[in-house]
Structures are given as structure tokens and as C-alpha cells.
Simulated assay, not measured.
Amino acid sequence: MEQKHTISILVNDEPGVLARVANLMGQRGFNIDSITVGQSEEKGLSRMTIVTSADERMLEQVIKQFHKLIDVYKVTHLSQAAFVGRELALIKVEANPATRSEINGIIDPFRASIVDVSPTSLIIQVTGDSDKNDALIELLKPYGIKELSRTGVTAISRGAAFARV
């Protein structure tokens, strides 16, 4: 049975590495639900966080293929242990002076914030797991979402736990 998996990959910080990782996933028939890439704690290395759906056997095969890529230093299947994963969403929603207080009441329990105000819209920033962000987006739809931008998940293992593959 397919389920979502979060994988962290430590790679050389060089041009073309992201393309090679994405190409490998495409060749194996994997869809990338989200991917984020940024500097890691080690100079010259970047950390990729990939969320994909697969059964255990298929996932094991793609992880083995990651290890074969020359630019890959370490692959961690974060979903095997406790981890913290977050994404950022920026939501531009239609808002007039009459609806602003309503929208403020909706976003407050989500610990979201208004980061831009114009005469006809608000830009709301929310950080959290994908389900939390999805829930806020659903609640804001009746007001009219003009634009939506999401970062994808970035994640790290909890505490001393380290699920290495």
C-alpha cells in the first residue's frame, strides 16, 4: 500500500545535482509531492527534503539508487522515526475593511500572520505541517484566494533519533 514518505538527502552543493535526483525519481516512476533544497550544516553540502508516495518495496529501490549517485553523501528516511516537518504557505486573499476582522479571527488559531495589506487584499503567512496549512486554505477559500504559494516540506529528525538508510 502506498503511503507518503519523507526522505532527507545530503548532496554536493553543485549545479546539476537537483536535476540528477529529480531525473532518477522520474525514471523510476515516482512523483515528487514536494522538494526543498538548501544549505546544510556542512560547508559545500546541501540538504534535499523530498516527499513522495510509494510502497515500502518501491521506496527501498529508489533509496538504493540515490546511494549510487556520485553527489549523494547520505540518505535518511525520516518517516521511519520521529521527525519535525514544516512548510510555509503565502496566501493572498481578497479582503475589504468589512471582512478583515473575520479573516483575522480565522487565521489566529492557526498562528498565521498578515504580512501585507492592500486596499483589496491581505497576504497571510502560515507555517506548519501540510494538513494544518491545507485546513487554513480551505477556510479562506470563501473569501477568494487570489494567489497561493507553498514551499514544500522541509524536515529534520527529532532529538537523538536518527533513521539512517
Rank of each mutant, 00 (worst) to 15 (best):
G38V: 07
G38M: 07
Q39Y: 03
Q39S: 13
Q39V: 12
Q39R: 14
S40Q: 06
S40I: 11
E41R: 06
E41K: 10
E41G: 07
E41Q: 15
E42N: 10
E42S: 13
E42T: 14
E42V: 15
G44F: 11
G44T: 13
G44N: 10
G44P: 13
G44L: 09
G44R: 10
L45D: 00
L45Q: 15
L45M: 13
L45I: 10
L45G: 00
S46I: 05
S46R: 08
S46M: 01
R47V: 08
R47F: 04
R47T: 12
M48Y: 07
M48K: 04
M48E: 08
M48C: 09
T49R: 07
T49N: 14
T49P: 08
I50M: 02
I50R: 04
T52G: 01
A54D: 01
A54H: 02
D55N: 15
D55Q: 07
D55K: 06
D55H: 10
E56C: 01
E56V: 11
E56F: 03
R57P: 03
R57H: 14
M58E: 12
L59A: 04
E60S: 13
E60W: 00
E60N: 12
Q61C: 04
V62T: 12
K64H: 13
K64A: 14
Q65D: 15
Q65P: 04
Q65C: 04
Q65I: 03
F66R: 07
F66N: 06
F66H: 10
H67P: 04
H67D: 15
K68W: 04
L69R: 00
L69G: 00
D71L: 05
D71P: 08
D71T: 08
D71W: 03
D71I: 03
V72I: 15
V72C: 09
V72A: 10
Y73T: 02
K74C: 02
K74Q: 09
T76Q: 06
H77P: 00
H77S: 00
H77L: 01
L78D: 03
L78C: 05
L78F: 01
S79L: 05
S79H: 01
Q80C: 07
Q80K: 14
A81M: 03
A81V: 00
A81K: 03
A81G: 09
A81S: 11
A81W: 00
A81D: 06
A82N: 12
A82I: 03
A82T: 06
F83I: 04
F83C: 01
V84T: 12
V84S: 09
V84P: 02
V84W: 04
G85N: 07
R86A: 05
R86T: 05
R86V: 09
R86N: 14
E87K: 00
E87S: 01
L88H: 09
L88I: 14
L88W: 09
L88C: 09
A89E: 14
A89T: 13
L90C: 03
I91G: 02
I91S: 02
I91H: 05
K92P: 02
K92M: 10
K92T: 15
K92C: 08
V93W: 12
V93E: 10
V93S: 09
V93K: 11
V93C: 08
E94R: 15
E94M: 11
A95K: 03
N96C: 02
